[in-house]
């Protein structure tokens, strides 16, 4: 099943009293079912915070987040976990060093009382392109790319419809990044996932996403289609600066 995601007037404030900091003043966007939606912007612009709000990892936000028209707040935990999953930036930090791949993958199955554990684990590993024998490996026995595959497998094992990707390749080498991007692309074609992807690399956005939002200090300055990148068709000065810098960096200018 493919799902749509809509945020309406999402806002969040960290801290209390005079030191309170409004990180997201007012965010609204709509992601179509099956779309890959990018969030770009400089560090500290609130990209990852948006993902953490959607996934309820941070839950004291105001406004509305609707997945297929249903508020994530009203979703019971079990349903929410089966609807959306998140993949984090650093595969060196996001896997427990003392848990084998089998432990990592079987825990969600046990919590959600699913059957056929062995079969599901084998399937998800082959989905992410790892051999079944990797179940008994520990993170230190895996390379960075293999770790990120395990992190993706962990997200896939509950068969979610929405994947939240927080810089899934920025800690990886180009050669390994290519493998992971290809994997994400293939999984989307096969399963019809909706992706929301945070990245700072516009080349990755151009490769993966249909549309993307440019964020600056917690606000969305502009939502653009990917076709706007090569010709720098943005209107807002910051988006133009960002796209211009990326083009210059790639040697297009």
């Amino acid at each position: 099943m493919t799902v749509s995601v809509e945020t309406r007037n999402l806002s969040i404030t960290f801290g209390h009293g005079p030191t309170a900091l409004k990180v997201l003043p007012d965010i609204s966007f709509l992601v179509e079912p099956g779309e890959c939606f990018g969030l770009v912007g400089e560090s500290g612009s609130g990209k990852s915070t948006v993902l953490r709000c959607i996934s309820m990892l941070t839950d004291f936000w105001k406004g509305e987040i609707l997945i297929n028209g249903k508020s994530v707040r009203d979703m019971p935990l079990i349903e929410r976990c089966r609807t959306l999953q998140m993949v984090f930036q650093d595969p060196y930090g996001s896997l427990h060093p003392r848990q084998s791949v089998r432990t990592v993958l079987s825990e969600p199955l046990r919590i959600h009382k699913l059957t056929n554990h062995e079969e599901r684990m084998q399937k998800v590993l082959s989905d992410v392109g790892l051999p079944g024998s990797f179940l008994d490996r520990f993170p230190h026995q895996l390379s960075g790319g293999q770790r990120q595959r395990v992190a993706i497998a962990r997200a896939l094992i509950l068969e979610p419809s929405l994947l939240l990707l927080d810089e899934p390749t920025s800690a990886l080498d180009v050669s390994v990044q290519a493998e992971i991007l290809n994997l994400l692309q293939r999984l989307r074609e096969e399963h019809g996932f909706t992706y929301i992807m945070v990245t700072h690399d516009l080349a990755v956005v151009d490769h993966m996403c249909d549309r993307f939002a440019v964020m600056l200090r917690g606000e969305i300055t502009e939502i653009l289609p990917r076709e706007a990148i090569p010709g720098c068709e943005a209107v807002h000065p910051y988006s133009r600066e960002l796209i211009g810098a990326s083009l210059e960096y790639e040697g297009h200018v």
Partner: peptide, 20 residues
């Protein structure tokens, strides 16, 4: 050549990236 081909580019085709 593999490293260069593995890199996504702005305005590039969306074919799967070459893997080393």
């Amino acid at each position: 050549r593999g490293l260069i081909a593995a890199q996504p580019r702005i305005g590039g085709a969306r074919a799967p990236l070459a893997v080393l």
